[in-house]
Design a binder for these strands. Sequence first.
DNA 1: GTGGTCTAGACCACC
DNA 2: GTGGTCTAGACCACG
Lengths: 133, 133, 133, 133
Amino acid sequence: MIFRIDADDGLAIYDQIVRQVKYAVASGTLAPGEWIPSVRELARQLTVNPNTIQRAYQQLQADGVLEPVRGRGLAVCRTAVRACVAERQALVLERLEQVVAEAVQGGVAPDDLRTLFERSVRKVMRGGTAEAG
Amino acid sequence: MIFRIDADDGLAIYDQIVRQVKYAVASGTLAPGEWIPSVRELARQLTVNPNTIQRAYQQLQADGVLEPVRGRGLAVCRTAVRACVAERQALVLERLEQVVAEAVQGGVAPDDLRTLFERSVRKVMRGGTAEAG
Amino acid sequence: MIFRIDADDGLAIYDQIVRQVKYAVASGTLAPGEWIPSVRELARQLTVNPNTIQRAYQQLQADGVLEPVRGRGLAVCRTAVRACVAERQALVLERLEQVVAEAVQGGVAPDDLRTLFERSVRKVMRGGTAEAG
Amino acid sequence: MIFRIDADDGLAIYDQIVRQVKYAVASGTLAPGEWIPSVRELARQLTVNPNTIQRAYQQLQADGVLEPVRGRGLAVCRTAVRACVAERQALVLERLEQVVAEAVQGGVAPDDLRTLFERSVRKVMRGGTAEAG
DNA sequence: GTGGTCTAGACCACC
DNA sequence: GTGGTCTAGACCACG
């Protein structure tokens, strides 16, 4: 499990962690029943304050993704996968709609938008495969 | 010129105004040389604090989109159109790439992403034309 | 609006605040649209760290009870009352069931339990009216 | 002697054991002079860390409910019954008062509270008898 | 070792 | 002035 934090994301650090954990659960990288890194451990890895991690984990518990096991740590809930997959898709759709809406409203032609979209996909795929392989 | 402010956008109000003015210039809705509403006027229209409008207009001046004319008000710069068009496209592209990157990294298949994208475009086109016409 | 914090409650301070705000909304003491004391103000009143208040308010936002108004403060959501009333009743019922279940399971006779319950009600009513009047 | 541990109780495991032993003594299920299961035995039965059982037994000794017999184990004190009965009743009363106080303070009408209470008793009696018989 | 809570104090953006 | 975020460091209960 490796998380990447981007301080310039605009999104709060704890929120980036929440999102990445949910995505990891949705994509199977983090399986139900598995242990998530301890608060202190992840804080050390990301060189972030433990409180920030704590806050992220707390929200993940409130969202039913993690469950605490007294004195052991935090485990991925067995019921979380479906919700995470659904949420991920809903989130992507929502953000796509927002971008598309603003672009169209701002006078970008739909066909130009499709071109830009394809360019994005290709770029990300290149970057992703290049980075992964 | 009508702007729409969404308090729940997450984006700051003054930023929404800046963006919408630039989009309006890019799409020709706001032509070079035209006058932009006064701070007080727009603040009244949007029921927003005048300071907020002031801040948006300052940013637009700093970005070279508006220029002050002594005793008259603020006019759209004649040189601003090209920059606004470029910026709009760059902005859309940047946001698209971000969404696409996160989706792919989160395990969404490219084809699923295309489906979601097309759904967004159709939805926005429907909503947009319905709302406008 | 006056909140009372009991450090020996066992329940976390921020949780006591959350519960009291919800109860206040449920009972109409805190009306929809009203402003809630600012983070710093309430922290000063209760001589508690602002972060603790902040955390309580954040959870109340997550629960849809409060909504932030940029630069103004936090207001009680207009849709929150029904949910708060229902939650209050559900919570009371849940806790009653828990106490009753443990008592019965622990060998307390139902009639003795009723006596204890009536004694509690009378005591609280006395205390409440005495305190209020 | 069978104890039931509920990890989601909120109450610490060792505390659940302490309470259940006291209740058992109060209701006569566990008679004075009887032996209580050894730390290891009970830990195995409940699949709980032996340290946790140890802690519960220590607390019970401190409360004068159990007494150690060299080389034999822990026995229920002959003087413990009265204290356990009194403590059980006091505990139930205390918790009832707390729930009632919060409910009334939160705006629940006393008569509504009585209805909720009776509903709880009936539900628990049903569940209890159904489960026991 | 684990998570949970709290304090103290700082910085930011927004209105 | 407002809320939002983060750091630093402390203490606690639990296993």
